[in-house]
Each structure stands twice: as C-alpha cells, then as structure tokens.
Design a protein around this nucleic acid. Structure first.
Length: 184
DNA sequence: CCCTGATTCGC
DNA sequence: GCGAATCAGG
C-alpha cells in the first residue's frame, strides 16, 4: 500500500487542495499525517505553488530580494533553546477561511472592545515580558491595573487579538479562533 | 511565548 | 526529490 511519508498522487492532490483552500502548512501536515509542516512546505515549493492566492502583481514580497546570508548551518548549536514541548500537531486546527469582503464585515460597531476573551493571565508590569501583550486593563490609577499578558509576537506590543483592535485596519475581519475558556 | 511560510542544503 | 534545520516576520 501507500507508504507513509511518500508523496503519492492522492497526497499531492490533497496537499494542493488544502493549500488552495487556505489551510496552513501545519494543518495540512496534520491532515496528511506522517509528515511535518516543513515537509508540506517543501513539497509545496517544489510543486511550484507557495504563492497560494497571491497576486503576482501585488506580490511584492521583499523576501525574494532578501539577501539571504549564509547560515552555514552551524552544528555547534543544534536546537539551541528548542521548545521542549512541541504542542504542534493537528490539535491546532483552526478555520482560516479568508472571509471575503462581505457586507457584514462593514459593521463599524465592531469597535466594542468590551469583549473579554483572551483573559488568560493578567500580569503586572513586573511580570510583563517582552513577549507579553501589553494591553491596559482597568484603571492605571488602581493597584489592580493589569496587562493582558497574552503571548505577543516578537516585536509586537500586543497579542494577536489586541493587535487587531489596536490597529483596526480598514474593515475588521471577524476571525475567530478557539475560544479560550477561561479561568475565573 | 505562540504561530506562519521561505529558504537552504545534506541526504 | 525529500525534509529537517534554519531564517525571518507576525
């Protein structure tokens, strides 16, 4: 039968299907199984895809002109500071369907930040780390003032959720990820 | 700290 | 051709 880890026609077609469907490499990898997201990405590139739904005209990816330095892959520090627990897998399933410009998306009333979803762990300024979301919560005059503390992306002052609110692009896309049940 | 894809390069 | 390792950005 089909060997696991071998790119059969079925797998390649499924790969292209899921890829064009907007699924991320990790999701596809989890769907295919026996393959990592790197394998998926590698295959995608090999197939000549990669760009996915990107317009060639608008594809001004600086990466193409990025002067890639010589990593030389120093074996001296293999997996330096590697994540001990790779939660990566098929458990990170998320419907990343790119919502097209729908009339519903024009809801300006969406500015309501009253939503309280990412209330994972509020932290004080002392517990705040660079990779923590600094979203003011409550009155700064009160000792109960806390920050979101959610995981912020490197360089980003806020977490994924708050960064959207903070920047508020043209139209807010209702991209809803897994609801974090929260704590009390 | 999580994630994403892009690229390189040994196999 | 394959994919882990690595890079780079969010």
């Amino acid at each position: 039968m089909n060997e696991a880890g071998a790119w059969t026609e079925e797998r390649v077609e499924l790969l292209k299907k899921l890829w064009s469907d907007g699924l991320s490499a990790s999701q596809i990898a989890g769907e295919l199984g026996s393959v990592t997201r790197n394998a998926v990405i590698g295959k995608v590139h090999r197939l000549g895809l990669s760009g996915r739904a990107k317009n060639p005209a608008a594809a001004s990816t600086p990466r193409a002109s990025t002067p890639r330095k010589a990593p030389t892959r120093s074996p001296s520090h293999p997996m330096a500071g590697a994540h001990a627990g790779m939660t990566r897998g098929n458990n990170a399933l998320a419907p990343q369907y790119a919502a097209e410009a729908d009339a519903e998306a024009e809801q300006e009333t969406v500015l309501s930040e009253d939503v309280v979803v990412p209330f994972s762990e509020r932290v004080t300024i002392m517990d705040l780390r660079e990779y923590m979301c600094r979203w003011p919560m409550g009155d700064p005059t009160t000792p109960e003032f806390r920050f979101c503390g959610g995981r912020s992306q490197t360089g980003m002052p806020y977490c994924t959720y708050h960064s959207r609110i903070a920047y508020q692009p043209a139209a807010d896309r209702r991209r809803d990820r897994s609801k974090m049940a929260g704590r009390g």
